[in-house]
Amino acid sequence: MIRFDNVTKVYGRDTVALERVNLEIGEGEFAFLVGASGSGKSTVVRLILKETEPSAGAVYVGGTRLSSIPRRKIPQHRRNIGCVFQDFKLLPNKTAAENVAYAMEVTGQRRRSIRAKVPQILELVGLSEKRDRYPEELSGGEQQRVSIARAFVSQPPILIADEPTGNLDPDTSVSLMQLLERINRIGTTVLVATHDRDMVNEMRRRVIALDRGRIVRDEVKGAYAGEV
């Protein structure tokens, strides 16, 4: 589903973010991408979204080489990838329900199906009662759940979360991870970039560890530091 083929990414002249990374995540897999700040996690996410281009090597998503996608086709590419960000990236002028609906509106879906789908997905993330609140009226965990609802409402084959628990307390983080697991169970490929040690140890899923731009470990039922 996602494949990195000898990918190197250099920012500016000599800031190496990724160095010859080879990586393959299969369809329906659930994987953690772990590592300290600056280890290259976010760069992996940005490369998958085609927010930036690799300096060398190639990134494939769903079998397509990303460098072959022209600029005007990027939106279609991104609609296949639901994305949850550490800072939520909600539109401040829209309510929770409108934020979720926007992700469907950009794909030109009918208003009737938007009106049917949005309440369902808000129900799933447990925010039915707060559908008309604006982001600033919601707590961090609630905003993050809106963000997940938005990422998932079009049922993309891939869901990526970049530090989804970074701004949340431990209890909220657990329920959030359970949500991501539920999404994975219906067949969505889920990739979570995080440095939340407890979370990773709790879940016992595939762990890909990055250190200074290199993959140092890749275990099928791993833990954060590999101490198991």
Binding site: R72, P75, C83, L91, P92, Y102, V106
Partner: peptide, 15 residues
Amino acid sequence: KEIEVMKLVGASDSF
């Protein structure tokens, strides 16, 4: 920032 978010959610330029 808003424009950036719209683009990341998959909105086309004209949208």
